[in-house]
Design a binder for these strands. Structure first.
Lengths: 407, 407
DNA sequence: GAGTATATGTTCGTTGTTTAGACAAAATCA
DNA sequence: TGATTTTGTCTAAACAACGAACATATACTC
């Protein structure tokens, strides 16, 4: 039950019905391919004639293509199968992180082509833009046979002004109000989309075809790394808020008297569960504080810590278990606030999931208000799936499939 | 950019464009009445012919009516003004609270008719249903000349299963899984809508005509009384989540080591800012704990406390100031999570707003992540506006104006 | 192998809706 | 009194869903 905004609405024009049904058809083909015109008509509950017209329109625009004639199910004429046309177009996804920047190339469905490459992130954004432009151009040249590029998606660990294409604040990169989109667009020559990494991860899961049935348009992505990034999907739409800064559950407190957080406040969830927090707990001091560090502490990662815990280091296990408990307590707050059908968790800590899952779940149940909330599905997204890169790709791929704005 | 759910979508039928434009027209008349067909056509950017057809449809259905011929602005034929037809229909709003239950009767626009009445809440829900049915019937008989009743809206301080019309859990009433809707419908004979009070308050503000311009579909309602109720509006739609339990920011922690909350957990925001928490702070002990209470503590209200603070009682002022600070800290979490254009605050504590606003604002700024967030408008809703009763009424009134479900 | 049944995909007339423009009615101004 | 302007209605054209018929292609049956 949405309210129509009397100052910003979309009147239905002559072509609106067609536009709506066209997008529905496109999405059904995406979700059920290979699929025939007749099956499409049955799914949409319209006459075959209508489905045929919609299909011919999508064919003309090159969004879908007719594959081989399929096998007949019983008797009768064999169907001609339809597919999303992922040939001749590609998407480049870029994940800018504090230490390294990752690049991936995919087809229009977001299927990975070739390997993920990476290079050291230069914190001077002008240099980074040049680095990126060179590498993206090289990648597109290497995969020339795949066809033209539909766009570049870039995710950054910080807040983004979508309209201006600017990174408002990225603490780990020490960026403030950096225009990344326009210089990149100018240097590469293809449209560039920029977004916060947590939001993009949530988008990627929303648009992943496998998630269709269960999440029903309500899901949450929590990315635990140096910081904690979150993206919230409500009613099938990413929650952006008034300034595209919604969804920052990483800085909701667990204890306002708790440890200092990178954001300047104290006791944020992030200050309890981020990789830095976990390592600090292990080393028994605050790694965020400036000061001398031994070699161990500066190169030692959470993966190393998990390895030690698995090898029987009780102190390592205790540090991870603490993080697990705080993770569950924070997830409970998100579940109480959003009531999602599923929570996705990504980040290095998930490699220890078999160790920590019971602790996470028990902490989660401890603070969820309802029995349903306590049973909320928590789904681990392993690093090999490259959730941030998939999010970057989704920035480019998703708009073509989105519902038209109406009413 | 909403995703189309390939398992639950709405195909555009022949009448879909009409249905969309009909609702837009209805909303524009609601927002701009009195308005002529020609002005409506200009606002919608359609031909006058289309607007005329839409209007005649709305006239036939009795949703609007033609008023007197208006004054001509310059030369030319005078316009005939259109209005939402609030005659001959009424709505009854019911606010069930732990101590008392309130009843109000309004027209279809939600404009109050007569005075608000109230009676003591009987915690036996069967008795309460009978009490309510009798009083609502009496009220409708008293205002017989207003016309037939479009429906009864009931708000309760607890979680509600909308599909089943059941109150899942209302702690202050000690209700669990109580079917309120069906017995009430049977006893009164008009459709009954039940909803959580925080959600309903948010709905009422969303549908209040004055808020159209500024909130842009992103707003939050926080109701501070015995507990803390919240309702979140995202993209012009109330955030319900998978089980209609979304929006419970009252139980997001300020400090997980903090005081015990009625929900069973510790350190919830509610345990810091609810009226009970404020009074406990003043009396120096936990009022939620069972045990002997002096007369003072059981009849003394937050309003009394505020009166003492205004009269110069330093201890009272300190208790209120603490609440103000915690209020601001919690609001910051909501703002970080939702990034609303405006936050509405209701409840007894708002009568002290002139005292506490600077403290609330400063605490809010302390924990908001962005400058924009820190500037988020906080709007006090005084008790005289009866926000919960308006919410109850909105449950009945809003569906007629909502955008049609499409795509 | 011919005929029948069945499924796919196209075509065509019907109905409903927006779009474009003309027209009558009503008011102001010269 | 006539020109001008605005409102509201009406008509034809374009467009899209609806409904049914038709051609095509395959499998099954006798």
């Amino acid at each position: 039950m949405r309210k129509i905004n009397p100052h910003d609405f979309k009147v239905a024009r002559r072509g609106t019905s067609r536009a709506i049904n066209r997008q529905i058809a496109l999405n059904l083909i995406r979700a059920h391919q290979p699929i025939s015109r007749a099956d499409l008509a049955r799914l949409m509950n319209v006459r075959r004639g209508v489905a045929s017209l919609l299909v011919s329109e999508l064919l003309e625009e090159g969004l879908i293509f007719e594959g081989a004639v399929g096998e007949a199910v019983g008797r009768g004429r064999r169907p001609t199968f339809l597919y999303i046309d992922t040939r001749q177009r590609c998407i480049v996804g870029v994940d800018v992180r504090a230490s390294r920047t990752y690049i991936m190339i995919t087809d229009l469905m977001g299927h990975q082509i070739g390997a993920v490459s990476s290079f050291q992130t230069n914190r001077d954004h002008d240099v980074l833009v040049q680095d990126l432009a060179r590498r993206v151009k090289q990648l597109l040249a290497d995969y020339k046979e795949i066809g033209s590029c539909a766009g570049i998606g870039v995710v950054v660990p910080g807040m983004v002004d979508l309209a201006a294409g600017r990174v408002l604040h990225a603490p780990t990169l020490a960026w403030r109000d950096v225009n990344l989109r326009d210089p990149l667009t100018a240097a590469i020559g293809f449209p560039v989309h920029i977004e916060n990494s947590g939001k993009a991860c949530a988008l990627a899961q929303l648009w992943a075809t496998r998630s269709d049935v269960l999440t029903a348009g309500h899901s949450v992505f929590v990315s635990v790394s140096d910081g904690v990034g979150t993206g919230i999907v409500v009613n099938g739409e990413l929650m952006r808020g008034r300034h595209n800064t919604a969804g920052e559950f990483g800085h909701v407190p667990l204890s306002i008297d708790g440890p200092r957080c990178s954001c300047g406040a104290t006791g944020c969830w992030e200050a309890y569960v981020s990789n830095i927090a976990t390592l600090s707990r292990y080393f028994g001091r605050d790694l965020a504080e400036p000061g001398p560090r031994d070699v161990d502490a500066s190169t030692f990662t959470v993966e190393d810590l998990i390895a030690r815990a698995r090898a029987g280091d009780a102190k390592a296990l205790a540090a991870i278990n603490s993080t697990a408990r705080y993770l569950g307590l924070g997830l409970a707050s998100i579940i109480n606030a959003v009531d999602p059908a599923r929570v996705y968790v990504g980040g290095e800590i998930t490699t220890a999931w078999s160790l920590i899952e019971p602790i996470v779940r028990s902490a989660l149940r401890e603070r969820t208000l309802t029995e349903f909330g306590g049973m909320t599905e928590v789904h681990v997204v392993p690093a090999e799936e490259h959730p941030r890169l998939r999010g970057a790709v989704a920035l480019v791929a998703a708009p073509a499939f989105a519902a038209p704005m109406v009413a």
